[in-house]
């Protein structure tokens, strides 16, 4: 992903496409896209990934998390034909320094823990979690869906954000 972001490497993008595009097609179909439209959405999402690559920050998100959010946003924009409210970007995201290898690795490990936890859920629980992140549950339905340990990954990301804030202060 960094090769795509920093060098606009099309070969690297091809590999990313081969990994994610078939999963994305499964994902958008489960999220309610008609079969005929699914590939259009996947195409749209993958092109957005290419075009928004400069916004990707490995200290704060794994590639799968980031593509997940791009996919949900695009699918909703296409259905509703209006943008959703988005938080402010953190300043100086563009002039990012070298990512901190320790932070990137730790985030990767936390994400693996999350993936394992998802695999270990019983089928009903897993179905609920999938529905929640596919956008099929309301917030009050989700209140009852539990089972993923988000606490540790959250504090890991929090550390990364604190580091970034620190750098931003130094820039001023």
């Amino acid at each position: 992903m960094l090769a795509i972001r920093d060098n606009r490497d099309k070969r690297a993008f091809g590999l990313l496409f081969d990994h994610f595009a078939p999963r994305l097609k499964g994902f958008v179909i489960r999220a309610g896209a008609p079969a005929g439209q699914a590939e259009d959405i996947v195409q749209d999402v993958m092109l957005s990934v290419w075009r928004k690559a400069h916004l990707y920050d490995p200290e704060r998100a794994q590639v799968s998390s980031w593509i997940y959010q791009v996919a949900r946003n695009r699918q909703i924009d296409i259905i509703r034909k209006e943008g959703r409210p988005m938080p402010e970007a953190l300043k100086a995201e563009a002039e990012e320094t070298e990512p901190d290898a320790g932070q990137v690795l730790a985030l990767e490990q936390e994400t693996d823990v999350l993936r394992d936890a998802l695999d270990r859920l019983n089928p009903d629980q897993r179905d609920m979690i999938e529905k929640a992140y596919l956008g099929e549950l309301t917030h009050s339905d989700i209140a009852e869906a539990t089972g993923l340990p988000l606490g540790t990954i959250k504090s890991r990301i929090r550390l990364g954000l604190e580091r970034l804030r620190h750098e931003l202060k130094d820039l001023r």
Binding site: G26, D119, L150, K154
Partner: peptide, 28 residues
Amino acid sequence: RANLLAHQAAGGAVLEGMAEEKLSGGMR
């Protein structure tokens, strides 16, 4: 913001775990 990114990671884990669907020829 950290919590939002943590939920995105959970969404990413769901995406990784999705069954693959074959793409039609020419799409790539």
